[in-house]
Nucleic acid binder design. Sequence first.
DNA 1: TTCATACTTCGATGGTAGTCGAAGCATTAA
DNA 2: TTAATGCTTCGACTACCATCGAAGTATGAA
Lengths: 226, 226
Amino acid sequence: MKEGPDIALIGSLIGDPARANMLTALMGGRALTPTELATHAGITLQTASSHLSKLEAGGLLTQRKQGRHRYYQLAEDEVGLMLENLMGFAASRGMNRHRPGPKDPALRKARVCYNHLAGDYGVRMLDSLIAAKQIEVAGDDLALTDAGQIRIEALGISYASLKKSRRPICRTCLDWSERRSHLAGSLGEALLTLFLDKGWAKRENNSRAIRFTDSGEKAFSGLFPQ
Amino acid sequence: MKEGPDIALIGSLIGDPARANMLTALMGGRALTPTELATHAGITLQTASSHLSKLEAGGLLTQRKQGRHRYYQLAEDEVGLMLENLMGFAASRGMNRHRPGPKDPALRKARVCYNHLAGDYGVRMLDSLIAAKQIEVAGDDLALTDAGQIRIEALGISYASLKKSRRPICRTCLDWSERRSHLAGSLGEALLTLFLDKGWAKRENNSRAIRFTDSGEKAFSGLFPQ
DNA sequence: TTCATACTTCGATGGTAGTCGAAGCATTAA
DNA sequence: TTAATGCTTCGACTACCATCGAAGTATGAA
């Protein structure tokens, strides 16, 4: 009784702990080399290489060569959304790999979700944008309003350049720690880039966590009041 | 660098073809016995039994004994949502287990998604309810409006009884064939039950497909105009 | 009781996939 | 050229797990 798409294929790709660790590491948004991914997963380079080619063949990762390095990253936004979604489900079942450690609160507060902001801050940002009617909810999709366009231009994000890309500008992504949506899509990416560029927030090394500076906190709260 | 929830655990549960087939079969919404599930998966009863206890331990399935039968079903709405979501992702990657067969169009038109209506009809129904302002979108969640409450009472669905349960009344579920949301939650379930009870639609055996009768089609189109 | 059905548990088997050492290829630097 | 780094490919090993036969348990029927 074989019906519909093959979930076993993706399942088995994600089901191996080493591969799952690599995917989680890549949720940090940076493109990583096989060597880096191997240490994240706690395996040798050879084994990592074999896993990576499987993930690439499965369409989860893409790869680009640069000199003698190879950089792997998640293939598309959809991959990140799917993974975050799975994490949400796993979290709701209490499937945690660790007793909640010191890093955990930081992750829940603010973290990178592939290329955009997630965690409490991510959710608050989207809520605030919707409350200010700068983003509106239309069925499944999010749409930037006229007021929203003016707003992001004022922040120094070019609406025209966002529109050029074929990717959706706004899109929802289910947050595993908050169990609510935050903002993904090219605007979500642009906003996170803005925070980092302005020095309001910094990525932690080897972690998805994002640390806001004091001035960054203030600026963020000013821009996106609750 | 172990961070966040353990996606490998769910991945490996879903990653086995036999288990994936059982889960897919259970997406049909009916509770099934180990014997039935074994034939769906093409394995013996002993093997099925072992798989089922793993799925139950993982929190994906629940079981109830009835006489000398055991009935398995998806543990909660969330499991169905997660699976439908994964199917959507798999479909978008072209991971299909079969060349699209004769059953495929029927599945895309209308099918059971655990306990509610999915496919083209499911999506149209939700769109229509939103357009009529009987359901409104509030951030992530769907909410039944006053007009919506009156409407469903008129259809013979008791709002009070829906409200009693702790489950959300309305909730979105991403449709893998349409790539848009349809209506899940207790109202989604009640509406599907209504269609079946009124004889407007019938489940096909051993399939998730739902076949609307001629009069059912008319009634449906009348209730939920495009 | 006896028999039949439904299912689980045990035990053995076999295949597959993750793992790593060693060797090979490609790029860069000197 | 030579050497070093980064990565892949090959081959062998191992461990795990899906699988099924056989035996055991539970419920129901006769």
